[in-house]
Design a protein around this nucleic acid. Sequence first.
DNA 1: TTAAACTTTCAAAAATAAATGAAAGTTTAT
DNA 2: ATAAACTTTCATTTATTTTTGAAAGTTTAA
Lengths: 167, 167
Amino acid sequence: MEFKEAKNKFVQTWGALGSQWGINKTMAQIHALLMVSNEAVSMEDIMAELQISRGNASMNLRALMDWGIVYKEYKAGERREFFTAEKDLDELAVKISRERSKREIKPALKILKEVSTIEAKDSAEEKHFVDQTSKLYDFVLKADNMLDKMTEFNENWLGRLVLKIMK
Amino acid sequence: MEFKEAKNKFVQTWGALGSQWGINKTMAQIHALLMVSNEAVSMEDIMAELQISRGNASMNLRALMDWGIVYKEYKAGERREFFTAEKDLDELAVKISRERSKREIKPALKILKEVSTIEAKDSAEEKHFVDQTSKLYDFVLKADNMLDKMTEFNENWLGRLVLKIMK
DNA sequence: TTAAACTTTCAAAAATAAATGAAAGTTTAT
DNA sequence: ATAAACTTTCATTTATTTTTGAAAGTTTAA
């Protein structure tokens, strides 16, 4: 397999994986492209490589920057903007997990708390509901906190964790 | 908030969360419904509660059973089939992570391996590509193995892990 | 074996999400 | 202040995913 083919395969795969995890395909593809580029890439080049429109490129770059995993870069004497991706994988994982926690887990926890604290009447049905949603609340809260703690390690947290868990 | 309202809110929230994580809304809603039901539910009842068609119910129940998180149940003297969800959250998390690993992570790893082992010529660009995709391969492999180990604990693995990591 | 009671399948329709592209908005050099 | 070079926005179009529902399939009881 030659370089160009490999690069394309990687970008496509990363895009597909993104969709499966609720991240839009183009956003994941742009990220993939930047991750494996050794230098900052202009919007023009991104558009050309991925065959996407200007608007699409712009919107997804904005989204990636909101997630904190892609940065704008300015080159001396160049009017146009260039983009780079966070390339440190530990840092990337930390940022993604922080954002997803903030955007999705935290709001879900809020709802879980609400519904698990209703006044359960005497019916078995209602008791089971309160019991199950309470357990779910605890579980999700614990998992969310753990993710936080895990990634808080900083500097090769995944490697360290593996050691800690194995031992 | 009264029971019916809370139940509906929970089902809707779980459905929305599902979509955000690449699981279709109805599938997540059916799962939510079964999770908080204290007894097995018939397809008719699922259709009525979620206002969905027979085909939709049938397909998503099949998918949930394929994931191993919903079971068919037969009641004596009843022709129809009833469904229940895995209610143990540790077990649920284990099954979901196993399936996603098998369906998504493992195939992605295969591609990562392929593209990271191309013959890198002398250009900085190609070297960076091989370097970055190799790192990604290692990272994903390590994370995948860790998930496996984590959930292998069995019996309240999350609680135990929290202890282990905190200490 | 038949028919009633139920489930599954899948082509078509509907709903949802993503992409386009032209117009509006910015920035910078002169 | 102007215009060239570039980016963003958003109404519309396109693509993708999900849902429907009717027909085909299956199981069970008599």
